[in-house]
Write a protein that binds this DNA or RNA. Structure first.
Length: 158
DNA sequence: GCCAACGTTGGC
DNA sequence: GCCAACGTTGGC
């Protein structure tokens, strides 16, 4: 099992939206960064645990636990000419962008805010709090994941 | 809305 | 292959 963090702008798609989806599952499409693509394509496996982070909001924070609910597959909207994520340079026989299904597991009792993460000495090396980080999909160490669960009041233990 | 920190693009 | 210009992310 691997551990990840994914970002979403809550006014576009929040953890509450995910909880309302059928089977609490949503295709995680539209990732258009090669490093993030590589994490999805080469790293994400069914059952991996995911921290769900709200960005570009008044209080940026980890708000929920999710899980990877599929193996990775070609992101269908890269072939959709009407989508803003359409990529004319990507061919079906050699897709450029990948997606994965994400399922909500648990809403956190206590949000773990970016401010909290920055103040926690044990999380100093976390990618999310590093300078200039902009990846929307990133790996999280098991220790950091565990620490964040402790900060969140989650009933889920590793 | 500002702007730092990246990532991407395209001329050369 | 270099790098300036441009676009995007995301905290503040």
């Amino acid at each position: 099992v691997n551990y990840w963090l994914i970002k979403s702008e809550p006014h576009e798609f929040s953890f509450a939206h995910l909880l309302k989806r059928p089977n609490q599952t949503e295709p995680w499409t539209g990732v258009r960064n090669y490093q993030a693509r590589n994490f999805i394509r080469d790293g994400m496996k069914l059952g991996d645990r995911v921290l769900f982070y709200h960005s570009s909001t008044a209080v940026p924070a980890i708000v929920g636990i999710a899980e990877v609910a599929s193996e990775s597959y070609p992101d269908p909207i890269q072939f959709d000419k009407k989508s803003k994520y359409y990529d004319a340079g990507s061919k079906k026989e050699n897709p450029r962008w990948m997606a994965v299904d994400v399922r909500a597991v648990e809403k956190l009792k206590t949000l773990v805010t970016l401010e909290t993460l920055k103040q926690e000495p044990a999380l100093k090396t976390m990618r999310l709090v590093q300078r200039g980080n902009r990846l929307s999909v990133m790996p999280v160490s098991q220790d950091d994941f565990q620490k964040i669960l402790e900060l969140s009041g989650s009933i889920i233990l590793l």
